[in-house]
Amino acid sequence: MSTRTPVRSSLWLGLLAVPAVAFFLVFSYAPMAGLVVAFKEFDISKGLFGSPWNGLDNFRYFFASGDAQRILVNTIVLNVLFLAATLAAGVTLAIMLNEIRGRFFKRAAQSTIFFPYFVSPVVIAIMLQVLLSGPSGSGGVVNDALAGFGLPTVSWYTEPGPWPWILTFVKIWQLGGYMSVIFLAAITSIPEDVYEAGQIDGASRAQMALRITLPLLKPTAAVLLVLGVGRIFYGDFGTIYAIVGDNGTLFPTTDVIDTYVFRSLRQIGDFGTTAAIGLFQSVVGFVLVSTAVLIQRRYSKETSLL
């Protein structure tokens, strides 16, 4: 596909990548040697050489736990929900923003929807408590509203059922604006003449958004999707832990690998086991991404990551 670029000038061009490659070598690849500890019984004083090997023992810990299956399911379900929801929200917002013509309104809108990205998980957790439980755990804005409509109120913090949706809502709020910025940049670079054809056909704006803009956002969405798939075994620890914390009643639907590992090991601080879980998450992620990339290449070479 790159007949245009002769090999010599491609090597020349490769110089552009040298600083980044140096960065990765020093700050990413060199420290990866630390992963060996996943196969060791770690001991502070003995260090790496002294710490005895223990094979796959560190990995066994997680799978021996009776909760492994539920936690894996939670992790995947929540991540799929988050990924799909934030992507959809980002695309929708970007397309809608693109429709707005008032310069001032558009700028104001962009600044506002980007703002939640900066709100720390702790503050999100506090605001959720105001919404769902109110001071000292009874009432809350949502329950007041439910009562206002004559509906039964819900004791949100002891009811695991709705939490995947609550967390998804939080993610949309948090990342919708962030994602939309990425898509907006992509929309910006769509050449004008693409729309001209639509114009002549007399398509409505909705049709143009649907038939022209949306398909042209596919490559960007595909990249985000593939990147997201690789991280599907990680939880969003910061947000989930800040909101759910040690509230065991919500674990049936909210406990993910990261929170489970953090909780069960925080007292013992077993480096070997944490490293093993991390490695497991990485390897699974790697396999998933490779699969995703292969599938993607097969269906659409143009949008392929590699």
Binding site: A20, F24, P31, M32, G34, L35, V37, F271, A275, L305
Partner: peptide
């Protein structure tokens, strides 16, 4: 691309970075 993607998944951890 692969070279740049791998660090997104695999990280050596805090202690090696700290020593580095």
């Amino acid at each position: 691309a692969i070279f740049a993607y791998i660090p997104m998944l695999f990280a050596g951890g805090l202690v090696p970075l700290y020593l580095l």
